[in-house]
Simulated assay, not measured.
Amino acid sequence: MGKLYLVPTPIGNLEDMTFRAVKVLKEVDLILAEDTRTSGKLLQHFEITTPMHSHHMHNEHKTVDGIVARLQSGEIIALISDAGTPAISDPGFLLTRACVEYNIPVECLPGATAFVPALVNSGLPNDKFVFEGFLPVKKGRQTRLKQLAEEPRTIIFYESPHKLIKTLGNFVTYFGAERSISVSRELTKLYEETVRGTAQKVLEHYIEKPPKGEIVIIVEGKK
Rank of each mutant, 00 (worst) to 15 (best):
N59I: 07
L71I: 09
L14E: 03
F129G: 00
A118E: 01
K3Q: 14
V24G: 01
A69Q: 14
L190Q: 13
Y206A: 11
V172R: 04
F134W: 06
Y158Q: 03
S81D: 13
E192P: 13
L109W: 10
I207H: 12
I77K: 00
Y158G: 04
K212C: 11
A78Q: 10
K146Y: 02
E60F: 11
L14G: 03
L164R: 01
F175G: 01
H61W: 05
E178Q: 14
E208H: 14
M52H: 04
H56D: 09
S39D: 08
I215F: 03
K223D: 06
L95G: 01
P10A: 03
R37L: 10
C108R: 11
P211N: 10
V195P: 00
G213P: 06
N170D: 15
I165K: 07
K23G: 05
V202N: 00
L79P: 01
P136F: 06
G197T: 15
P86C: 02
N170W: 11
V68C: 12
E208L: 15
G111C: 08
T63S: 06
C108L: 12
F19N: 12
Q200V: 04
S81K: 06
S182I: 09
S122A: 09
T173P: 02
T188M: 11
H205Q: 10
E101G: 02
Y206K: 11
L124P: 00
K138I: 11
T198M: 15
M57L: 05
L95Y: 05
I104D: 05
L42T: 01
L148Y: 02
V120N: 05
R196L: 07
P86F: 03
T36R: 06
L14W: 08
F171T: 00
A199N: 03
L203K: 09
I155C: 13
P211C: 08
T9A: 06
E178G: 09
R153H: 11
K26T: 08
S182E: 08
K166W: 05
Y174V: 09
E47M: 12
F131I: 08
E178L: 07
C99M: 07
I207T: 15
I31Y: 01
E27F: 07
P210R: 12
P161I: 13
N59F: 07
A114Y: 00
P105S: 13
N126T: 09
Y191W: 15
R153W: 08
K41P: 03
V68M: 07
G140F: 10
A98W: 02
V68N: 07
F171P: 00
V120I: 15
E101C: 02
K223W: 02
L124I: 13
P105H: 11
L4R: 01
A149E: 11
